[in-house]
Structure formats: structure tokens, C-alpha cells
Design a binder for these strands. Structure first.
Lengths: 147, 147
DNA sequence: ACAAAAATGTAGCCTCGGCTTTAATTCTGT
DNA sequence: ACAGAATTAAAGCCGAGGCTACATTTTTGT
């Protein structure tokens, strides 16, 4: 799975950085779907394939396949012709994603990005924000708040 | 090309935002390759498939296919068994990407992200930074500089 | 209750961005 | 000059994430 045995905190080499960026990308779509399903369940008690597809802006079969991947990853469960639900792990992921999204949007706004743009860009950016960077954002926002 | 006739500055709807994020992602890999080719040409006068593959951390055939896409998009040119070169458009793209990368790294550092992490995260982030956001970053950095 | 409508599932196709394997071409050293 | 090494190309596979078209099941309205 890992290229190098001990990739703890070593400065990642150029190719490794690309690998990591690609890996993050692989997770991105799943994160979006998980978050969306979480939203739908909160808003309407359940997440139907049609609603997921509608909000994600994709055709139903695409949503179905995404849900299948979520199920395969142990993030969601569903029975045929019934709604989709998140596992504990899936719900935790959704919550993390949501929190991260908010932090990214806030950070962007804090450095002067127009709110509308911040919201748009965050959609793509958020998946590539590492934990270290996220915590730095939080510290920055906390510091900026008490000014 | 555009979904809606007048998508000037309207607050993008949720599905549209996802579409945009996906479109940005489609461009990301090409941007990386273009930048890399630009680097190689600058450093060694030409960009060979092997070198491109090596630095991108992929197998040569993958690099070959990426170059094919770049050529199809009018960003690069090459002849069989010869090096790869950027068109004017490709070179301009590479330069924009490089500048944006620097700005993103600087912004991250400015808000307290460790330089190593900034460099890593920027690799994934940069492709999703819109022009509006980029200009906001530049303004922020300029303002922070004169403190 | 049952037919029509809506939702979901299934199958099959596409592109992209990876990969390996095998073939062709160019480069290099003696 | 030419054999062997290195490079590039070509072909074919895979999974992800889109799509359309069609089949099935469930919901709904009369």
C-alpha cells in the first residue's frame, strides 16, 4: 500500500506528492456523496437515490454506483428500493467533511475571498486540505476572531 | 460548453458547483504535466517521456497518454522518438500554473501552515483556486508584506 | 384494485488516468 | 558498424465516474 516503509513526516518527494494528491482525489467523490447523504437524512429523514442524484447533479445510475462504492467501503448501507443510510463510520466522515468545509470557507473569507467565490472554490479545495493545514486554518481563525 | 446561457456571476447552484469542481479536476492533471514539461525544458532544454514519467511518478505509457491529451488540446507538440515541447498556449498555461502554485504555497505559509505541509497540500489545492480567489490571495500577501 | 407514474436497478458504453507487456526505434560503446 | 542498452510506442487491462436506454419494483390516484 505504502511506497516507502516509513513515510512518517519525511519531506515527501515530488512524485510522492503527486501520488498523495491523486489519492486525495480518489477519496473526494466519496466524501461528497457521504456529506450529501448526511444532509438529506438530516433534512428529510432519509436519502433517496433520486434526491442524491439531483443534488449532486448526476444521473441516477451514477448515484447508484457511488452508493455501491460507499457500501463497499463500509460507509453506507441500503436495501433495494429503499433509502440509503450512513454507517457510524460514514456519518463520522460526513461530519468531518462538513466541518472541514466550513473551516475552509471561513478561512477563504477571512483572507478576503468573496463569500460566493469562497463557497464555490471550497467545494474543490476542501478535499486536499490535510489535517495539519486544517488545524492551522482553525488556529488562524481563532486568532483573527479575538482582534 | 456552458450549461446555462448566462452564467456570468450568478451564485452557482449546488449541482453546478459540483460540476465546476469536476471540470477543474479534469484540467488538473493536464496542468501538472504542462508545468512539469515546462520545468524540464527550462532545466535541460527538452522534456523526454522518461523524465516526465519519472518526475510525475507514473509509468512511461501513462506519460505518453498524457502528452497525447496535451497535444490534442493544443498545449504541446512532439514527434515520435523526440522530445515534447509546449506550444505558446501550453507555455502560458505552465507559467500560470507555476505562479499560482507559488501564491498558494505562500498564502498557506502566511496563515500558519508549516512550509513542508504547504508545499504538499498546494499540489492538490492549486487546481481548484479560481482567479478571483487567487487575486484575493495576492492582495492578502501584499498587505501582509507591508506590516 | 389496478393502471399509470415514479423510483430504482441493470446493462452497456464512454473517457480518463493509472498499469503491464511486447514491439519498434534510437543511442552508445567497443 | 553493429550489438546491446535505453527509450519510446502500441496494445490491452483495470477501476472510477460519468452517461443513456431499458427492465423492474414501488407508489399513487382514481
Amino acid at each position: 500500500m505504502t511506497d516507502t516503509a516509513d513515510d512518517t513526516d519525511l519531506p515527501a518527494s515530488r512524485p510522492e506528492r503527486f501520488h498523495q494528491a491523486r489519492a486525495a482525489q480518489a477519496m473526494a467523490v466519496l466524501e461528497d456523496y457521504a456529506e450529501m447523504i448526511g444532509d438529506l437524512i438530516e433534512e428529510m429523514g432519509e436519502a433517496r437515490i433520486t434526491d442524491i442524484a439531483g443534488r449532486m447533479g448526476v444521473a441516477h445510475p451514477t448515484a447508484t454506483k457511488a452508493v455501491a462504492r460507499l457500501k463497499r467501503e463500509g460507509l453506507a448501507v441500503s436495501r433495494p428500493y429503499r433509502g440509503v443510510f450512513l454507517t457510524e463510520e460514514g456519518a463520522a466522515l460526513a461530519e468531518r467533511v462538513r466541518a472541514r468545509h466550513r473551516t475552509v470557507v471561513d478561512l477563504l473569507i477571512a483572507v478576503g475571498v468573496p463569500p460566493e467565490t469562497a463557497e464555490m472554490d471550497a467545494e474543490g479545495l476542501e478535499h486536499h486540505v490535510s489535517d495539519v493545514t486544517l488545524r492551522a486554518f482553525e488556529r488562524y481563525l481563532a486568532a483573527a476572531a479575538k482582534t
